[in-house]
Every structure is written in structure tokens, then in C-alpha cells.
């Protein structure tokens, strides 16, 4: 068993593309920093991954028989320790985000400057991630909307047992369910804390709960099943 110590490790890189010009370009760029191996198709990629266990795989997404996240996961499974950098002629923010989420350590253009490619490989070797700025922005957008979805999921939007409440009271119940304080709710709804407290008193009475903790429990216990 070879030790995992980065310093003593030989940087083994598997370059996989069906396009010979790309294999040559990438190999030339990396020849000074890595021991290179090549693969021309998917079976060869998997076979070499299994036997060589390279540190890094540069994988051209135009390789035949690659189908999105699923293929990626299958390839990753052959050698889980290998860090995979994906290259595509037409990088898109959505594909980049979904591939990173699946575990890719890099996502870039096949036309990338060889100097940058070396930098990317070194970064990924160090355990960092290499992606373009646009992909990062998209990643942030996705993260924000997922976080929001997640938060909303615990809110009782269509709970019929809240029917007796006014729209304002429902808003407040949602926020209590999400863990907000009176002060936060007041800020959010642009009213005073006193007003929030008055609403709460009315909500407690209508729902028959004694305090905000019970309200939060009530609300979260009545979470609607999503889809």
C-alpha cells in the first residue's frame, strides 16, 4: 500500500480523450509535473483507473458513452481516491454545478490555456476545486435557492389547521416555525415587537397552544408532506 503523503507521492495523471490532439496537448502541458497515462475510450478509462489508481483523471466529456452525473459516479467508483477534472468544449453553468455536486474536483473548457491546466491540476492535487467564475456564481445561486427551499419546507404553508388565522398571523406562524425571534419577525414585517406579541397572543388562543415553543412544535409537527 502506497502512503497517502502528498509530498512523497508521484503525481500520476490519466488523460482521457477520444481526440488525439487534446491528449497530446494536455500531456505536453503536464509532462514536467506528472507521470502521464492516456485513455482513448471509456472501457480503457475504467481499466486504467482500476490498475493505476491515478491521483488525477483529466476526463474529456466528449468521450463516447458518457452520460452526465450517472456515468461520472460510475467512473468515480472505479477509483474513489482519484480526483476527476472534467473538460468540455462547451462548459455551462448548470452542467458544471451538477458535476461538482456529483463530486468532480474540476470543470473547465477543453480549450483552456495549457498554463492554466497545469495550475488547475496542482490546485486539485492540493485538495482544492477548479471551476470558472460563472460556474461559481451559478453554484451560489443554486445553493441559495436550495437553502430557501429547505427552509420553506418546514413551514406550514398549506396546513388546513391554520385556516382560522389571518394572512398576517399565518406569516408570523411560519416565521416562528422557522425559528425566528419576535424581534426578527418585527423587522421582517416592518411592525413593532409589540404588534408581533399582540398577533402571537391571538394565534396562541386560536390554535390552543400556550407559548411560542409549543407553537413551533405544533407547526413543525404539522409539516405538510412534500409531494
Amino acid at each position: 500500500m502506497v502512503s497517502d503523503h502528498g509530498a512523497a507521492q508521484v503525481l500520476k495523471v490519466l488523460v482521457a480523450s477520444a481526440v488525439s490532439a487534446r491528449r497530446i496537448e494536455w500531456s505536453q502541458a503536464l509532462q514536467k509535473v506528472a507521470i502521464l497515462h492516456e485513455a482513448l475510450d471509456r472501457p480503457m478509462v475504467e481499466q486504467k483507473l482500476a490498475t493505476l489508481k491515478p491521483v488525477i483523471l483529466l476526463l474529456d466529456l466528449s468521450l463516447p458513452d458518457l452520460h452526465g452525473q450517472k456515468s461520472f459516479a460510475e467512473i468515480q467508483k472505479v477509483s474513489p481516491s482519484t480526483r476527476i477534472i472534467l473538460l468540455t468544449k462547451t462548459p455551462t453553468e448548470t452542467e458544471g454545478t451538477s458535476m461538482l455536486e456529483a463530486g468532480a474536483k474540476g470543470y473547465c473548457s477543453t480549450e483552456m490555456d495549457p498554463v492554466l491546466l497545469v495550475k488547475a491540476v496542482k490546485m486539485v492535487q492540493k485538495g482544492e476545486v477548479w471551476v470558472g467564475r460563472k460556474v461559481i456564481s451559478h453554484l451560489l445561486d443554486t445553493l441559495v435557492s436550495l437553502t430557501e427551499q429547505h427552509r420553506n419546507r418546514s413551514l406550514p404553508q398549506e396546513d388546513p389547521s391554520l385556516d382560522g388565522l389571518t394572512p398576517r398571523e399565518k406569516e408570523i406562524v411560519q416565521q416562528i416555525g422557522g425559528g425566528s425571534s419576535n424581534k426578527e419577525i418585527a423587522y421582517h414585517l416592518h411592525v413593532s415587537e409589540k404588534t408581533v406579541k399582540a398577533h402571537l397572543t391571538s394565534i396562541f388562543r386560536k390554535l390552543g397552544v400556550s407559548d411560542r415553543l409549543h407553537l413551533a412544535l405544533y407547526v413543525n409537527g404539522h409539516r405538510p408532506s412534500m409531494r
Partner: peptide, 26 residues
């Protein structure tokens, strides 16, 4: 200009967080 300003190390953490949220998705 519509870009973001985060370090590479943070990008890694963001991806982990994203993957966690995705995993919880039905």
C-alpha cells in the same frame, strides 16, 4: 458585474454544502 468573490477553499465548502442539501432532496 454578476460574478462572485469567494476563495477556492470556500468554493469547496459551498459544494459540500450543496451536495448535502441535494442529498436531502427527494
Amino acid at each position: 458585474a454578476g460574478e462572485s468573490w469567494v476563495s477556492r477553499a470556500m468554493v469547496g465548502k459551498l459544494i459540500d454544502q450543496l451536495a448535502r442539501l441535494m442529498a436531502q432532496e427527494t
